[in-house]
Every structure is written in C-alpha cells, then in structure tokens.
Design a protein around this nucleic acid. Sequence first.
DNA 1: GTATGATTGAAACATCTGTTTGAAACTCGC
DNA 2: GCGAGTTTCAAACAGATGTTTCAATCATAC
Lengths: 234, 234
Amino acid sequence: MTTASNPTKERILSAAELLFAETGIATTSLRRITARARVNLAAVNYHFGSKDGLIDAVYERRLGPVTDEWLTNIERLERQYGDDPAPVEEIVEAFVLPVARLASDEVRGGRIFMRLLAQGYSEARHYFEKLFSSQYQHVLDRYRQALRRDLPDVPGETLCWRLQFLLGALTQGLSGGELLKLIEGQADPRDTERAVNELIPFLVAGLKAPAPKPAEQPRLEPAAGTADSEGEIA
Amino acid sequence: MTTASNPTKERILSAAELLFAETGIATTSLRRITARARVNLAAVNYHFGSKDGLIDAVYERRLGPVTDEWLTNIERLERQYGDDPAPVEEIVEAFVLPVARLASDEVRGGRIFMRLLAQGYSEARHYFEKLFSSQYQHVLDRYRQALRRDLPDVPGETLCWRLQFLLGALTQGLSGGELLKLIEGQADPRDTERAVNELIPFLVAGLKAPAPKPAEQPRLEPAAGTADSEGEIA
DNA sequence: GTATGATTGAAACATCTGTTTGAAACTCGC
DNA sequence: GCGAGTTTCAAACAGATGTTTCAATCATAC
C-alpha cells in the first residue's frame, strides 16, 4: 500500500532525497524533483499534500528503521546484562551501528540521506524537534542511563555533554566526510565500515575520559581586537 | 571604510546572520533581511553586489578572526616546544579556544553564527569548499602534524578520521546545543565556558585512544527487514 | 462493456524571489 | 553655495516558486 507497491510515490521520494542532499531542501524545487523522477508536477501535492509533507516523508522513510534498531539493540543489552553495567564499547556500538547501517545502504542512497540528516537541524528544524521529542528523546535516554551505570565517575551533566559530542562526531563522521577530503587525500570517506571502526574507539575513549575539573580559571577572556558594539535591531 | 564606519552595511550583516541562522539561508529573503535591518531593499545589491556576496560577507566577518587565532596559536606552540612534541591537551585547546571565543561572543551574536557554521556545509557548500581549500586546509594541516608528532602510535589515516570527529563534536558542542536540551533538561547549552571544559577532555581522550584493530569481521551485515529493491532513476 | 474511483496530465493561479532602474537625498571639499 | 560623488529610496522587472484546477487516463469490479 504505502511502499514499493506505489512506484511514483517511491520515485518522488528517492529523487527528492537525492536533490535535497545535493543542493539543499529549500533550493530544490518541486519541478526539479518531478522532472528527475519523471513524474508529473502535481503528483507531489497529490501524494504528499505539500512540499512539507514530502520533506516529512523523506525523513520518515529512513529514520523509522534506525529508531527501531536502536530500541532493539538497547533492549538486547538490558536483557543480556541485567543489573550489571554493559560494557561501554557495546553500548556505543549498539548506538552507532544502526546509523552506520543507514549510511552504508548504498543501493538506496543511504549516504546521501546522512548528509541530509547532518543538515537537518537547520533546514527542517521544526520537523526534527517534533520527531525528536516524540521518539528519539526516549531512546536516547535509555542509552544515557545504560552509560551512566557503566561510568559512575562521570557526572550526569558531563555525560549529557558527551552524548552531544558523540552525536556530532557520529553525523560528521558518517555523512560522507566532505571535510576528510580536505584534511588530506588519504582516507576514503565513503568507507563506512572503516568509519565505524575508527569511530568506536574514539567515542569510547571520549566517554570514559576523566571528568573535567570544575572550573580552573576562565579560558575565554574577551578576544583581542574588534571592539565595535553593534547596535541592536529592535 | 569597510567596518563599523558604515552603519547600514553592518546592520545588514547582523540582520542577515540572525535570520540565516534562524530560518536558513535559502529561505531567508532579502526583503526580510532589509526589513529587519530597517534598510532599503536595494542596499544589499548596492553594498554586496548580490545575495551571494552578502552570504560570503557574513561568513567572512566571523571566520577571519578565527583563522588568525588558529594560526597564532599553532605558531606559538611550535615556537614554544621546538622539536619536542607539544602536549595533546595544549594542541586541542589551541584549536578549540578560537572557535569557543567566537561562540561566546554574545554581544555580537557569536552563537547564532555557530549555528550558521554548523549548517554551512549544506547550504553554502560551494563557498565553504572555496574558503576551506584556500585557508583552513593549510592551518588544519599544521595542527594535524603537531598531533602526529605527539601520537606516534596513531596511524596517519586514523588521525585524519579523528580530526573529522573532532570537528563534528566541536561544532555540535558549541552551536548552542539544540540537542542537549532534548537529551535532558540538565546542562545549560549556552554555557560556552562549560562546553569548552567538557569538550577538551573528551577530545583529548578520543585522540589518544588506542588505534582500532584493522578489520575484525564486518559489522555491517545488511539490515534485517525491508527488502524492496527501489528502482533507479536514470 | 461500462461505471466508479484512483491516478495522471497540461495549464494556469497568485505570490514571492533577486535584481535593476532612475530619480531623490545626502556628504563633503571647495 | 555649489556641484561631484556617494548613498538611499520607491517602483518596477523578469523569472521561479508551491499550489490548484479540471479534463484525460488508468485500473478494477460488476
């Protein structure tokens, strides 16, 4: 009914995903999408209601399986280890692998979507916040609690920060590595298997790091130059 | 001539930066910008030539000082330690602080720009690639080499990957933490000083992590469900 | 075959986009 | 005070955008 049985709907989704990732969501017109999908312009509004509906559908198609896998994995760990803390490595792997699997889904353009995901916070923020608070928050919290049990020396707040860093490194690392190309020609940014192999020790070590000393001295003394005050705008 | 002495130019830049960060670059019209800046519509084309010119100027205004500071810091370290390897902590701090200083520049809306930076790869990619290859690549390489000397056990490629992860965690961590809010209400995402304090141990530990074992078994066996083949689009 | 509902098609809709124009308003040296 | 150069302004420009319309086509059950 919803998938695969309806070819034009899927054609539109794939074309949209590709073009969104290539040139951004806002700058991609429905005409470019429908031309790429070899489908009539009106088909988008017919099948998805509006461009916003299409955007939602593009994200939904990919993110659903990831959430499911996240949930499956954490539940497996909880069952497996009971009240004992699961090893950090396994928790991290349980979190990273579903995303990596998405990124490595070449035939369905997974990596393209990863780039879309990395930019999601900006262009489709309202959708993300809705989606996040309804689904991911819950899952993410399970992972946080699992890590918490395993890292008694890391304060709760610090763990929150580190989860944020983890998410940043994860999306950046799996989104195809535009930056990596620029750092040096060496590593192949398309090698997801390799990316995972590199990511996990990095993240595990970061999570396990000793908690930062509370304050020391403030390191952010005001910058040297440029002291114009810049009037507010009403 | 160029800065501060020309009020409308600065007004446009600030209004554009704010709106770009709030609603994205492509979806922000010149009319919204000029209205916010209380300036005539034609002023943008008069002062910046085009919308693209304005986008460039917005990025340039913030990124110039960061690059300068990056360069200053790495040169100070090179001078200070000579042929000895500088401690990883200091290298990381020398890299993180200029960005953090930018993010904490509340009066000039630095954090807003950080969000813009985090989304920069997608919306202003062409500009970023130009800018990156002309400026950052060079600086980033100095940091990479400094770290390389200090981490002889970490293979070159692995270090490249880790630099990428570092950049991801850095932008995500300093961009105001939309995610952090959602993880849990605890930490204050606006506390840049705190973010730096948390970032540095995390990144240092990640960089120092033992190198990953080459291959093991492939961890990305194809996902369980969803086996529709998804026709290509020509 | 024919009638019913879902889908496609080409064309037009109003609106918004970045940019340009040319006249008015300034600034500043003389 | 005047006039050259810079900056502002309102108005218009051509083009692209998302959406709607309504007839044509398709599939399917009777």
